[in-house]
Design a protein around this nucleic acid. Structure first.
Lengths: 337, 337
DNA sequence: TTGTACGCGTTATCAA
DNA sequence: TTGATAACGCGTACAA
């Protein structure tokens, strides 16, 4: 770990000169010394000490990725292919831009705040926040924030959001179910806020456009916590007897549900049609392969990171970006008369 | 971002006193000032500047998690439930110990080196390294290193390894196949180094203990790259006609294979038995549910991180830790005569 | 019990 | 074109 000071001493010149060469402020230094320094740097494989640089410049080159873990989902958070794919996209983009990524998982907003300010993080990507979490963070943290899948009109005044047209994606697939003759369609989710609410709205719209009335009983709530999932599935399977098709808010839930149904001797799609949302590995590898709504999760991560990077460069960005979705028809929907 | 200096000024005392209170060097300071400082700290929500602290103490409180992406697997790396579960375990352990995690993905050892030394990372967790990568890193990086699933006798002189008894896990499940009457058993992997070699050895041993001869044709190589996977599966399915059972080196491969088989009208387990290794979500949710070898991946991450933390505290740790595996019998193996 | 002063590695300002 | 020096925020030896 050689320092600039040491290099300057060995080369018999000042730290300023060395620093200037390092930063390519090449107009200010003779070609000869420049060459001399560069050769030496290469020889000793100089690596700058970021802590010192941060201190001197009051910036960190760190972008924080904070995932808020919902208490009832914690165990699955990082295992969820969705989350990991997102991380992949973010990491890659950040790294290619010469920044560093610090990953932080927490269910406590103030803990996240603490973390970002100790590290003086240059920018923040937030995922899994409830509407006002994002706002609360943005009130204390004065640097750029990009949220992923955080819906809130109010929030958009404070941060950029990267999302999908969730309502449209859901509309499309529910509409597809309807064209296949389904009228009794259930909606499965674990909550009805944010993304899930947007999807629920798309769901309702598709029904009403087809002249089908939405009732509260269409909404089936799943409880994903390990100690509740079994009883929850039992209950859902029972209620599903009144439906011919189900829209699940994620591929994970769809595949989980199909397994539960099969375990009870109910065949998909023969006895009931099931569709998901995400189009990840889980549904792709399942047999029958899952009919679902495709979203490009990695692109979401890439977009979040690159939007943040733009903001760091002072460029203007839209405060709402919606990535496209499309319908992927596979084998879990049966046409009925 | 208030500083100690500022606090001292406002409280009309020295930075030392404030610093002492912050660090609980409470013997050295009167109860009264202590209280005064503590109240003030809370009021202004003081957060130390880590860059400054790092610089002063020459430590970073950062633990680096470097994932080496194999070129042919890159896209899947972070999506692999294995990797994300591992990350989850590591992150949680590091965070609870008051450290921070920096995640870095790269296929270039020297890039990783560069990264850890700029940040003056206190300790390093390496995953996906080939044998000598770990050694090469350890020659330049003089702080504790823990590797995950990196087998190499030579390497163990340089770093701690966290792994499984891969040979035994494989032996157990292959032996189970044999007790179910199978004699013609294939082995599927994408390589034959490290972990995969250990599993291959377990495979061979199980065969030979049962008096079955292993031939090179038992080894079926899968090529996971997106542009090759289809032709690779085609080839494998063809060759599989000579076998009654297959051991796949991961659940991912097992499930992928089963889907490919079913697409060709070959039923599992009726026409052929398939087993995996890992016991993750993929196999659990699949129907028929996958018979596999269980490993606790999160525990691996936790163990890696906690071992590293021990080393940072100066405690002695074994240089090789093998976590247990166990057989999980589900529905993809058929008993034949 | 409290305060002064210095060093950590880097960048930036200003003088030579 | 180059060099001396202050500043960034913190921790700590040492002095008072």
């Amino acid at each position: 770990m050689i320092t600039i000071k040491e290099i300057a001493k060995q080369l018999n010149m000042s730290t300023t000169t060395v620093s200037n060469v390092i930063h390519g402020k090449t107009g200010e230094v003779s070609d000869e010394t420049k060459k001399k320094v560069q050769d030496f740097l290469k020889k000793v494989d100089y690596v700058p000490n970021i802590s010192a640089r941060n201190l001197a410049q009051n910036e960190s080159k760190i972008i924080g990725l904070a995932l808020k873990a919902r208490a009832d989902k914690y165990e699955n958070l990082i295992m969820d292919p969705f989350v990991s794919e997102l991380i992949g996209g973010v990491e890659e983009t950040i790294r290619n831009a010469g920044y560093f990524m610090m990953l932080y998982i927490s269910s406590d907003t103030s803990e996240i705040m603490r973390h970002v300010s100790t590290w003086n993080v240059d920018g923040l990507i937030l995922f899994g926040m409830l509407n006002d979490d994002g706002i609360r963070v943005s009130e204390r943290y004065k640097k750029p924030i990009v949220c992923i899948d955080t819906y809130s009109i109010e929030g958009l005044k404070h941060f950029t959001n990267i999302g999908l047209d969730d309502a449209k994606g859901t509309y499309d697939i529910v509409n597809y179910l309807i064209t296949q003759g389904h009228k009794k369609i259930a909606f499965i989710s674990d909550n009805s806020n944010g993304v899930d609410l947007a999807r629920l709205n798309g769901f309702k719209l598709a029904l009403s456009d087809a002249g089908i009335k939405y009732k509260n009983s269409n909404f089936l709530k799943i409880r994903p916590r390990a100690d509740e999932i079994e009883s929850s599935l039992e209950e859902i399977c029972e209620k599903l007897k009144n439906f011919t098709a189900v829209f699940c808010v994620s591929d994970l839930y769809a595949v989980t549900l199909i397994a539960a149904l099969e375990d009870r001797g109910i065949a998909v799609p023969d006895d009931i049609s099931v569709v998901g949302f995400d189009d990840n590995m889980l549904g792709k590898l399942h047999r029958p392969a899952l009919t679902t709504v495709h979203q490009d999760v990695k692109a979401k991560g890439v977009m979040a990171a690159s939007t943040l990077l733009k903001q760091l460069r002072g460029e203007k960005t839209p405060n709402q970006i919606q990535l496209p979705t499309h319908l992927v028809i596979r084998d879990t929907v049966k046409k009925i008369n």
